[in-house]
Amino acid sequence: MTEARLALSGDGPLVVLTGAGMSAESGVPTFRDAHTGLWQRYDPAALATPEAWARDRDTVWAWYRWREHLVSGAEPNPGHLAVARAQADRDVVVVTQNVDDLHERAGSGSVHHVHGSLFAHRCDTCGASMDVGPPPAEPIDRLTPPVCGRCGGWSRPGVVWFGEMLPSQPWNAAVDAVTSAAVVLVVGTSGLVHPAASLPGLAVDARIPVVEVNPGPSGLGSDVSVYVRATAGQALPALLHP
């Protein structure tokens, strides 16, 4: 912990890269955990594609709205709160692979969602943002999406599906943040999902220290300057507010 605290000390820009492990302690269901009860008969990967949307949008929309409901019931954990509190002393940018809104609800002001957000609904035709209201409180197997008032298309989840490109604005902002940081803190990622997994390497190439927090084995290997084996909730309050 001491070496990690030293690497994270200072007042230069801090970039925090987060993955599924960041939200695990908040009880956010993983992609596959959301397939319980009504949804057990579905393959999650089969619902998260443009092809699934074209084939059966009512089923896909119903599942994503159920995920919204589950995520809405979760609360930011001490890790999220520690990252938000760090803004009082320095510039902090969060780059997350998560599609939940827990960083924002914890109080982080600069958050880039490279895989999109469950709550950023948009038209599947013209791309306009759409307000669709709160999700149903009970699982429904089919639900018709709202119609876009601009072009007549359908509201779709604001996430990146398999086979889709990452949204350019968050990705470019992430690259800029990582390559201009004083230090990069990587929390709860596997290091396997590309292109997001390439971001720590960009920091290493720019000679920026990388601190990894992960309850399991390191997902970054030689890209890590300091590795702390712990959960986000355990480690981040101590690392960012010693």
Rank of each mutant, 00 (worst) to 15 (best):
S168H: 10
L81N: 14
L47H: 10
G153D: 04
L202K: 15
D223P: 03
W171Y: 07
V99A: 06
V224I: 02
Q87M: 08
N98A: 09
T96D: 00
S110N: 12
L38R: 14
P217S: 13
L220P: 02
V213S: 00
A24I: 05
G149M: 13
G191N: 07
H69S: 09
N98E: 10
S129I: 03
V213Q: 00
V111R: 06
W63G: 09
R85K: 14
D205G: 11
V99D: 03
L70A: 09
V94W: 07
R105M: 06
T2Y: 02
E68Q: 15
V111N: 05
A174K: 06
L199D: 08
G221N: 04
S222R: 14
A196P: 13
P76C: 13
P167N: 05
E51K: 04
A181C: 03
P13H: 01
P139M: 11
E51V: 13
E51M: 05
R156D: 12
W53T: 04
T18R: 00
R57T: 09
A177L: 04
D223K: 07
G201K: 02
P76Y: 07
P145S: 12
T125K: 11
A235Q: 08
R41S: 11
R41Y: 10
E51G: 07
V93Q: 12
L14G: 01
V160Q: 05
D100A: 13
T144A: 15
D33A: 15
L192R: 15
S225A: 04
A86N: 13
